[in-house]
């Protein structure tokens, strides 16, 4: 693992420039102060981990390589064996995160003509931690011209007492392909969920094509009522961008109110398809999203 010389110098990140790209994953009982910059800001130091991991795939003329793989905090990035021309990276959880007060960021770039898949090794569990402060988790996915990115993490579980604000910012070129799956479970078994809010914005050729904000768990209002989740505890989405689609498929409706429901339909930008599902369990949710994906011409089911 090495930091590429062209690593974007957008932020002062722990681990940057010191020759290592992995911070030792420790979590102590005291607030973690990763660098001088955050201490120098004055005021109360943030309680929790501050981490920004990055990875970037590039095409070397023959195949996809991953010249930048910068692990940080809870994100340990590991190359997996390529699948044909597709480079694969797995995000391993090096510590329990996010906890209250954590500020986490993951930045993934699939450069022009690359084929990249990013997965996570285990479910991400949002926990309360030592403070009731909200945790933030910002995922930025950038896909270049003629590139494809499969973002297929394991589910996110919102545990009782946790507060997590998640953002997904997706930037696509006009010829980019994307398969994004996002699954959420609200509460572990027999517990109420924490508070989980997710803002998903997708831009294609610089134009917004999807802007969505969900908020579940108290203090969100009526989040489990009949207009929002209808008592279901698992919800998720599959976003598919296929520039090769000649004609948008007709909306597909799957499932039933008791065992979970899903709709797959084109956005106003008809080369972007979105499946939205609610279900009683993660297994039913995955079943619905897989079934929706099978309705899309040319797209293959993820492993």
């Amino acid at each position: 693992m090495k930091s590429g010389p062209e690593a974007p110098a957008t932020a002062l990140l722990p681990g940057d420039g010191d020759g290592t790209s992995t911070r030792r994953p420790v979590r102590t009982g005291t607030p973690h102060l990763p660098d001088a910059a955050s201490r120098a800001t004055g005021g109360t130091p943030p309680a929790g981990v501050r981490a920004a991991a990055r990875l970037r795939a590039a095409h070397n003329g023959r195949t996809t390589t991953v010249p930048l793989l910068h692990s940080d905090g809870p994100f340990h990035l590991r190359r997996l064996r390529p699948r044909g021309e597709q480079a694969r990276v797995c995000v391993l959880g090096a510590m329990s995160a996010p906890l209250g007060g954590d500020r986490l960021a993951l930045d993934v770039t699939a450069g022009a003509r690359t084929r990249l898949e990013v997965t996570t090794a285990a479910a991400t569990i949002a926990l309360r931690g030592s403070t009731r402060d909200p945790a933030t988790y910002d995922v930025r996915l950038t896909v270049g011209e003629d590139a494809s990115l499969d973002w297929l993490p394991q589910p996110l579980i919102s545990a009782a007492g946790s507060t997590l604000h998640q953002t997904y910012r997706v930037e696509l070129a006009g010829t980019s392909r994307l398969l994004l799956r996002e699954e959420q479970l609200l509460g572990r078994s027999a517990e109420p969920p924490g508070h989980l809010s997710t803002r998903l914005t997708v831009r294609r050729n610089g134009r917004p094509v999807l802007d969505q904000h969900t908020a579940y768990g108290a203090p969100a209002s009526a989040w489990d009522g009949p207009a929002v989740l209808g008592g279901h505890r698992a919800t998720g989405q599959l976003l598919l961008v296929e520039p090769g689609l000649d004609a948008p498929p007709a909306p597909v409706l799957l499932g039933d109110p008791a065992r979970g429901q899903c709709v797959l339909a084109p956005l106003a930008d008809s080369q972007v398809l979105l499946a939205t599902a609610v279900a009683p369990t993660l297994a039913r949710l995955r079943h619905l999203l897989d079934a929706a994906l099978a309705h899309v011409p040319r797209a293959e089911a993820p492993s």
Binding site: T201, H213, T214, P226, A227, Q261, V263, V278
Partner: peptide, 17 residues
């Protein structure tokens, strides 16, 4: 982009249904 974008999965699913 600063405008609210609050969404409800079931309203979307049942709206299409």
């Amino acid at each position: 982009t600063v405008l609210p974008a609050a969404s409800a999965p079931l309203l979307d699913i049942t709206g299409e249904h």
